[in-house]
């Protein structure tokens, strides 16, 4: 086990030393996706605003329970889109990078960090839209926002581990690509992204409490909406992050030299 973790850490250290490569490649990726368009990556912002605007317009009920509904949706969509895109893209990561993995000796963590960087850049555009909606919705900037910023850092720190996990899943079980992308699409409705839970029990209660994504949304959302620190949700997310990293290191150490034979 010690050798496995050492092998995984060697890969990650080599990947971090090559940060110029994945930063440059991630920038190229974002540029390529919007090349020849007039607005370029601004489409990422427009896409986010269109979604958030639609949800706010359609579901806003105007009663007391959803006074901050715009802020609720803005923060929820920011985190959910980030999680959904990252996980969906991760499952096909090694398969997409097949020619590189079979033709170069770049450490696998370069591909992982390239995707993490790309996801962070995309989320950066959505974040601009989110802050705009928050300010327009009348949510005051407070010190509690620091907790939200810390929550975002925690999510960013968890991302590479989640990418590693789902990338190996996709490489060894190709069908999981479709399972995961369907689950993530459904997950948007099963997670309190645009609905609010007011403690009424029932099915909503199950989807709220037993859904790990809820807590990753709440650690960003709660400090902004209620000015309080959701300590339990933070602890859960930190524990989930550590668990994901432990599994990811084992997978990376054990299978990083094998993955070239399965894709």
């Amino acid at each position: 086990m010690f050798a496995t973790i050492k092998s995984a850490l060697a890969d990650i250290c080599a990947g971090l030393r090559m940060r110029r490569v994945w930063i440059a490649l991630a920038q190229e990726d974002i540029g390529d996706q919007h090349r020849r368009t007039a607005l370029g990556p601004l489409w990422l912002l427009i896409n986010y605003l269109a979604f958030a605007g639609t949800f706010i317009f359609v579901f806003h009920r105007g009663d007391a329970g959803s006074a901050n509904y715009a802020a609720h949706v803005a923060t929820g969509l920011l985190v959910w889109f980030y999680i959904m895109e990252t996980i969906t893209q991760s499952v096909s990561l090694f398969v997409r990078e097949e020619s590189f993995i079979k033709g170069t000796t770049l450490p696998l963590s370069v591909y992982v960090m390239r995707l993490a960087m790309q996801a962070a850049i995309r989320a950066g555009y959505a974040l601009a839209g989110c802050i705009a909606i928050l300010l327009m919705s009348g949510v005051g900037i407070s010190f509690a926002w620091i907790w939200s910023a810390l929550a975002i850092l925690l999510i960013l720190a968890t991302t590479p581990a989640a990418i590693i996990l789902f990338a190996f899943l996709g490489a060894y079980f190709p069908d999981s690509q479709f399972v995961v992308s369907n689950l993530m699409r459904i997950g948007m409705f099963l997670t309190p992204v645009f609905w609010t839970y007011e403690g009424t029990g029932g099915v909503q209660h199950i989807f709220y409490y037993w859904n790990p994504f809820t807590y990753f949304l709440e650690i960003v959302r709660m400090p902004i909406l209620s000015g309080s620190l959701p300590a339990n949700a933070f602890l859960f997310c930190a524990a989930a992050s550590l668990t994901l990293w432990a599994v990811a290191l084992m997978l990376l150490g054990r299978f990083r030299k094998q993955v070239v034979f399965v894709i």
């Binding site: 090559m18 440059a24 490649l25 390529d32 020619s99 033709g103």
Partner: peptide
């Protein structure tokens, strides 16, 4: 190594940018 001509090159990027990317990949 030279295994596959187009490997490691980005189709959308210019030749000059590709030289930079290949250089970075070589450390």
């Amino acid at each position: 190594a030279l295994f596959n001509i187009s490997l490691g090159f980005r189709r959308e990027a210019t030749g000059r940018r590709n030289i930079v990317l290949r250089g970075l990949m070589n450390g």
